[in-house]
Amino acid sequence: MAVNTFTLNGELVSASPGATVLEAARENGVEIPTLCELEGLSNIGACRLCLVEIAGSPRLQPACVTATTEGMEVRTDSERLRQYRRMILELLFAERNHVCPVCVANGHCELQSRAIDNGMEFVRFPYQHPDLPVDITHARFGIDHNRCILCTRCVRVCDEIEGAHTWDVAGRGTGSRVITDLNQPWGDATTCTTCGKCVEACPTGAIFRKGSSAGEMEHQRDRIRFIADARSKREWTP
């Protein structure tokens, strides 16, 4: 099989054709921070945390949706990239109401982990403190829009894996919100099969099992990849 050969952080590496920069980096043991990406789901390049530098391109490119090409030169770490990543994280924190100490996902949150990994020590942007609701009308799950980062993993997992397409996004810009069915309370969404995949997929505490108290909401995010592999590759063991 033909492979692409390219430079990753100054080292020559190879990638299977069609592989994204993110996949190739992972194959070669290089970590790139991500948030909206979840193995098993399609990629949409929404969060921009995985930005990398590509020689010859004035713009930074999201690794999760950029295909590798023969001879390309990729940098996954630089002062510039670190600055951008911190800024993206700060903007996410400033946009909604993330109060880690009392959050159900405290200690099990990808947003929190990325902030720690990337040395986000403070938020330089003014907090928006939007007035957002919590919907716990569903019998087993709840959604707290205060903690949603609009990664759309829930939307994709529901559509691509479960096939229910209960979740979607409504509104524009900072007014965007994930919704269930036609913007009905989740408990009234008749398409929801209560499969719980969105609960496992959500990177933060935005979607949670009802009854969770602070720090109690653990996710099994690799379940999504397991289901996807089971389907496409007929691999039945995790």
């Binding site: 100490p101 709840g142 969770s212």
Partner: peptide, 14 residues
């Protein structure tokens, strides 16, 4: 106000 009941012990402990 607006928070789920189950989160209250954690919130008020603060």
């Amino acid at each position: 106000e607006g928070r789920p009941l189950w989160e209250m012990p954690g919130i008020t402990a603060r």
